[in-house]
């Protein structure tokens, strides 16, 4: 009998046991709704971050394959929210990036403050698809939305004494659990030489993937310098200070042997821990291997900024 049954119906499942398609799809729909509801409870900022921005497309990185939104927003180095790569997405939900204003001080005609709204009106928002090379030898391709830092510098009117710019990140141990632990010397400080800051590639990003910048990526405004290692990109910038002398940045203070002020992507200057001649592209899969790292992360046009400099010494 068993044999007989199997011959007619190899799976041995009675037709009456099969779920009708409509019911099956209804269940899927229900699961989806439940899933979205659960997500919005667990990750309330996912909904806030959905706010889209108006921007102009540019030719930067047109040929690049973008890293997925999930990886760009789920694999972050942002020690104010924890040292694990998944910590920032999880721990930054309580952080409120608005209202926001940046203090402009130091060697400027007049110290002043600029609100995020004002800042976003200084120049049209542009989409810049940039490669991002982390000092830990992995990389991504991210469609940033932002404006040239130069627009803000022009507005700030620095004096002749301004040789460098210092970026100070927001530091709020109450809403930034990682900032309660002295892994680094808080607040996070980064810096650029004036000509690096004026370089057209250097932007202040306020969004990615067409939307407002998620908290874990440095909301509401962060620095993006695509020819330098990722840690140069100060997040949640609260103060911009024009200074005469080279700023002592956070990672330089943490380990001067490992992290230099310039931190230009350079395959021929090795880090004591990581090979810098090749990198793993995030999202490429288990068997994709490594790709060769390019000088200045492939942004050759910045080479002239360092003409005559020994980049092995000034790493």
């Amino acid at each position: 009998m068993l044999l007989d049954n199997n011959r007619r119906n190899p799976s041995g499942i009675l037709p009456s046991e099969i779920t009708p398609q409509e019911m099956f799809e209804q269940r899927r729909q229900l699961l989806k709704v439940a899933g979205v509801a659960a997500m919005s409870v667990l990750f309330p900022t996912h909904l806030q971050a959905a706010q889209t921005l108006d921007f102009q497309k540019t030719a930067y990185g047109k040929e690049e394959k973008l890293t997925s939104f999930e990886d760009v927003t789920g694999y972050n180095n942002y020690y104010e929210f924890g040292t694990g790569k998944e910590d920032p997405a999880r721990e930054s939900t309580l952080f409120k990036p608005s209202p926001w204003a940046i203090k402009i001080e130091g060697a400027v005609k007049q110290a002043k403050t600029i609100s995020l709204e004002q800042l976003m009106k200084l120049a049209p928002l542009e989409e810049r698809i940039y490669r991002m090379r982390c000092v830990e030898a992995w990389s991504m391709v991210i469609p940033w939305l932002g404006l040239p830092l130069k627009a803000l510098i022009d507005w700030a009117q620095p004096t002749g004494n301004a040789k460098y710019i210092e970026f100070v990140s927001y530091n709020d141990p109450r809403h930034m659990p990682g900032a309660r632990i002295p892994v680094l010397d808080w607040p996070y400080i980064e810096g650029l030489r004036m000509d690096e800051a004026m370089q057209p590639l250097t932007i202040l990003a306020v969004g990615l993937y067409g939307k407002v910048l998620p908290n874990q990526n440095g909301a509401p405004v962060r620095l993006v310098v695509p020819w330098k290692y990722g840690f140069k990109g100060a997040k949640a910038i609260s103060t911009i200070r024009f200074v005469e002398h080279m700023p002592n940045t956070t990672w330089m203070k943490a380990s001067p042997r490992e992290y230099g002020f310039y931190a230009n992507v350079n395959p021929s200057v090795d880090h004591p821990r990581w090979t810098q001649s090749s990198e793993k592209r995030i999202g490429a899969g288990l068997f994709a291997g490594r790709i060769k790292t390019r000088m200045f992360n492939g942004y050759d046009e910045v080479g002239q900024l360092y003409a005559g400099m020994d980049l092995k010494k000034y790493f």
Partner: peptide
């Protein structure tokens, strides 16, 4: 295999350049 795809010259460099 996964990290260096059997790129022996690069593996050798990685081993001798990086103490860890």
């Amino acid at each position: 295999w996964l990290d260096y795809q059997f790129d022996w010259p690069d593996i050798a460099k990685d081993i001798f350049k990086h103490p860890y």
